[in-house]
Structures are given as structure tokens and as C-alpha cells.
């Protein structure tokens, strides 16, 4: 069976600048794919592309396809995308404080999704809203539905945004840093809700995060992006055990672990260059401790790893050892 979401050799440009360069990813039902990388790596742009929001920021698909359940999203017009987005593709944004309309009651904001996408009557939509809120363990759902966003805490607002994403009966949820603005105890609640949805309902989840801890806890597979390209794409266990790309290894090494000796936390020198200044060859080479001559001139192509992953590094075998 073909995967639910299959991004094939996708390139995205804004103006004359190519921001996503030849990206391929796939995601099955019941699976969580993590998308990680520093700011400027192209994670959020991928989310906007999959949800058909690219025109909002003046971007366009330069080449490649995004197959969602067999349909190429790049071939759909605005009306077709609008039908999918909020319907079969749910979107959970990073900041729940700005994702909700401040002057509309919570319940109405969720109702409208199932009225639009499932064609439910007002009454049926409200019943569905309350049911969803209950599933997300929102206490006193009926009262919360009458509240305005400013009356709720950040964690509660993020649950409302998730309820909105679920209201259109999605097959795929794209969550862009869904817990970054939240406290850790609330983050744990939200991650538990999202992983529960995938396991119980067979949803597919594209989880964008910069937090390797969240990736290790929640994801099945991980794609590490750097400067608009896929550096490594693998199942979560081998990635953490034996990262093949120096960038993936460096990202993992940035997080303090239990019992880590002082001075062993390693940052990554420098920062992601702006898209107009991507270097030739491997884009990571100016920051890479292993870089040799070939890295500076030749672009490393994605190659298969023995465990069925992909890595784009000339020296991958040597590094994974």
C-alpha cells in the first residue's frame, strides 16, 4: 500500500530563492514522523507546504510532488486545498495564543470546522465539539465552549486547537512545534494526547519540533533537515544510537542528559546561513568537524543506510563506524 503522505523531490521557492531543495519524505497511517532541525532549516516551510498555505507567504512549489492519499497537492487549486486543509489534513500551530480568534467563543470556533467540512447542522456540530473536548480531557466542556480564548490557560488553548484540527475528521495532522510555548508538565500532557490519537485512531502525525527529547519520546521515524535539505531520515532508535550524519549527531549532543559530565555539552559552532548564502557542496560543511575537500565542492546525495534509512553525507560510513 502506498503511504498516506509522500513528498517526492519537492523544491519550494520564495521569489528567486530556493528554500526547500529536493526533499523527499513519506508518512504512513498510524505513524509519527518527526521533522527536526534548527531555525532556518525549513521545518515550518515544509508544514506550510503540506497544508497548502504556501501562497500566504508568497512561496511556490518549484518542482516535485506532494501526494496525499494519491492526490498531488501541487495540482490542486485554492478551493481544493481549502477543502483538504481543516478537513482531511488538520493543522496544529505553534502558538495557541494566536491560532484562536480572540473575539469568538471557543465552542463556535470548533463547531465551524465540522459544519464546513462534514456538513453538520449547528446542533450536531456542537454535539461533536463537546464530544471532542471530552476526548481531549477538557474539564467542564460545556462551560469552556462558552468561554473566550483569553479566559483559558496556554495548555487548554492548545487542546482547543487540537480539537479544531480533529473536528474535520483528518487522516493527517501536521503539528508545528505544538508544545514549544508550553510548560514542561503541560507539554507532557499534549504529547501524550497526540501520540494517543495516532495509536488509537490510526492518524498520521507530522510532528515538527526542535526538541530531540520530544522526538525520542514520541516519534517512529525522524527526518533531520539542514538548510532546506534532508540530512538524514531514519527510524528513531538507530538515529539516536548511531547517527550517520554529523549534523544529526551534533543536534543530539546539544541536549544535556542525565549524568553528563560538566563540559561535555557540545554546541554546534556557527549558525544556519540565510538561504541566499547557502555554501556549495554539503551545506553543513562550514560547521562540520569532519569536513574534507569533497564536502566543500560536491553535494552529497541521499544514500540508503543498512537499516533502511537515508543519509546525505560523504563520510557517513566512517562516522557511523
Amino acid at each position: 500500500m502506498s503511504p498516506l503522505l509522500s513528498i517526492e523531490r519537492l523544491s519550494v521557492a520564495i521569489g528567486g530563492v530556493t528554500l526547500l531543495d529536493d526533499i523527499s519524505l513519506s508518512l504512513d497511517r498510524g505513524q509519527i514522523l518527526g521533522l527536526v532541525g534548527e531555525s532556518g532549516s525549513g521545518k515550518s516551510l515544509t508544514a506550510l507546504t503540506v497544508t497548502g498555505l504556501l501562497p500566504l507567504i508568497g512561496g511556490r512549489i518549484a518542482s516535485g510532488r506532494i501526494l496525499f492519499d494519491g492526490t498531488d497537492l501541487a495540482s490542486l487549486g485554492p478551493a481544493g486545498l481549502r477543502k483538504l486543509r481543516g478537513g482531511r489534513i488538520g493543522f496544529v500551530m505553534q502558538n495557541p495564543m494566536t491560532a484562536l480568534d480572540p473575539v469568538q467563543r471557543i465552542g463556535e470556533q470548533i463547531d465551524v470546522v465540522s459544519r464546513l467540512h462534514l456538513g453538520l447542522s449547528g446542533e450536531a456540530a456542537r454535539a461533536r465539539t463537546l464530544d471532542l473536548m471530552g476526548q481531549l480531557r477538557i474539564p467542564e466542556a460545556a462551560a469552556v465552549a462558552e468561554a473566550y480564548p483569553h479566559q483559558l490557560s496556554g495548555g487548554m488553548k492548545q487542546r482547543i486547537v487540537i480539537a479544531m484540527a480533529l473536528a474535520g475528521e483528518p487522516d493527517l495532522i501536521v503539528a508545528d512545534e505544538p508544545t514549544t510555548a508550553l510548560d514542561v508538565t503541560v507539554q507532557a500532557q499534549i504529547i501524550q494526547i497526540l501520540t494517543g490519537l495516532v495509536r488509537e485512531r490510526g492518524l498520521a502525525l507530522l510532528l515538527i519540533t526542535h526538541d530531540m527529547g520530544v522526538v525520542a519520546q514520541a516519534c517512529d521515524r525522524v527526518a533531520v533537515l539542514y538548510a532546506g535539505r534532508v540530512a538524514e531520515e531514519r527510524a528513531v532508535d538507530p538515529l539516536f544510537e548511531r547517527p550517520a550524519h554529523p549534523y544529526a549527531a551534533a543536534l543530539i549532543g546539544c541536549i544535556p542528559r542525565e549524568g553528563m559530565a560538566e563540559g561535555s555539552l557540545k554546541g554546534i559552532a556557527g549558525s544556519v546561513p540565510p538561504a541566499t548564502q547557502f555554501p556549495p557542496g554539503c551545506r553543513f560543511h562550514p560547521r562540520c568537524p569532519h569536513a574534507v575537500d569533497i564536502c566543500r565542492t560536491e553535494r552529497p546525495l541521499l544514500r540508503e543506510t543498512p537499516d533502511g534509512g537515508l543519509v546525505a553525507c560523504h563520510l557517513a560510513e566512517r562516522i557511523a563506524g
Binding site: V184, G213, V214, A216, R257, E258
Partner: peptide, 13 residues
């Protein structure tokens, strides 16, 4: 609530 960057430390939350 803080997740270690280690899938082996994955746990029921």
C-alpha cells in the same frame, strides 16, 4: 515531564 534525548528512556507518560 522532561524527555531525555534517548528513545530507550521512552516511557508511559
Amino acid at each position: 515531564s522532561s524527555f531525555a534525548p534517548d528513545p530507550k528512556a521512552r516511557r508511559e507518560i
